[in-house]
Amino acid sequence: MNRVIAFLILLVPAISTVCAQYNNTYSLEWGGGSWFEVNSIYGTISPSNFAILQLGANKMRESDWRITARVRRVERKLANENTREPYDFPVNMLNLRCVSKSGSSNIPPGNIQNMYIWNPLVGVNNEVELVNFTSLNQEGYHQLLLSFELKVEGGDYLKYLPRWSIYYFAMEYKLYTRNGRNNPWKEERILSLEPDLFCFSVNIDGYPQNPEYSISVLPEAVLEFSTISDYANGTTKTYDKGLRISATSGYEVSVRALSDNFTSVSAFGTIPLNLVSLQLSGGNGVKQPVPLSTQRQMILEGVSTNGEILDYDLIYSAAAIDERYLLINTEQSYSTQLMFEITSR
């Protein structure tokens, strides 16, 4: 007799032009950037081309690469003033992440280990790694353009920054290479930039209105073990646009199960929750999977969607079935309920 196990999951929502260098040395150059404004105490994220770095070499060899960033100093210019003054901006509230690559390089995006990962700038004169990756052998001129976003974290400190004030950051970027992980990093290039290329303005008009949040989720998800491969290797089911959210300020989305196990009304025994994991895909990339649990687990966070609705795919994955559950010899269904919640951040 065929054995079939189906998991029923009920979901509950709650509220610059750059000169090429044709030699065997590497180059690290400024590839351009953009300006943006912070207008909420909940912070904001810059355009995706806030900072662009260009790497180049006449002939690439297989090698490990590493790029770091350091804030050398901070300056501020107030409205209606023509001069800048040194300013002690909380640099630890700034984060950079690489969001895209372009150019003639043959480096696959998957080789860039920490793409889409926020890297806190920590503080003035602290060197922070932005990206690291392994290049491939490539003839001809090699060019790689990396685009970065800047996130200004929200907080009460923003309330005390004067309107129309502009903050300038003198940056230093370093390029390192090494041949094999057992060898030390070699510093190849230093790119020191004046503050005009890395800046943003702050324009917060009084105290914000009450933030608004919304969340909706597909009411049901089913995972089914129906083949030998399912039992041996596990099974996965994706629900396109299964989660929709919007927020006018910083937010977190969490999930938790409302029962300790998967249970069945037609069978004895239970199946543990952590047999199944949940993963989100969409927005700014694929998130890390989390095993189902009765503990509240954060699966998504952000500064704001500006009231726009963002869609995410829900990916449910079940691991291979343990031998003790193979005693099931009829079709049986096990279920649990999940609570999705969006809260302020």
Rank of each mutant, 00 (worst) to 15 (best):
T330V: 15
K237N: 04
L53H: 06
G250V: 10
L314G: 08
S147F: 02
N203E: 11
Y157M: 09
F262K: 04
Q297T: 15
L292M: 10
S277E: 10
T83P: 01
E220G: 10
M339W: 14
L136Q: 07
V290P: 03
R3T: 13
Q279L: 05
Y26G: 02
V122P: 01
K287G: 12
G33V: 10
H142Y: 10
N80H: 06
G285Q: 08
G250A: 13
K77S: 05
Y173A: 01
P90C: 02
S344N: 12
P109V: 03
N182P: 00
Q279A: 07
S344Y: 12
P219D: 14
L218W: 07
I321G: 07
K59R: 13
P289Q: 09
M115S: 05
I228S: 13
R70F: 00
I342E: 02
C19H: 12
L292D: 02
T83L: 14
N203W: 07
G302E: 04
E188R: 03
K174N: 14
T44N: 04
K159V: 04
T177Q: 01
A318S: 15
S344E: 15
V131L: 08
V74Y: 02
V18Q: 14
N24A: 12
Y312R: 00
C199Q: 13
P13D: 01
V222L: 14
V202G: 06
Y42P: 01
G123Y: 03
D88Q: 11
L144V: 09
T235V: 12
I245S: 06
F200M: 06
Y42E: 14
S277N: 12
Y167G: 03
T248Y: 11
W118N: 04
N95S: 15
D230A: 05
V253Y: 01
D313I: 10
K186Y: 05
K77F: 01
V4F: 12
L175T: 04
E194T: 12
P13F: 06
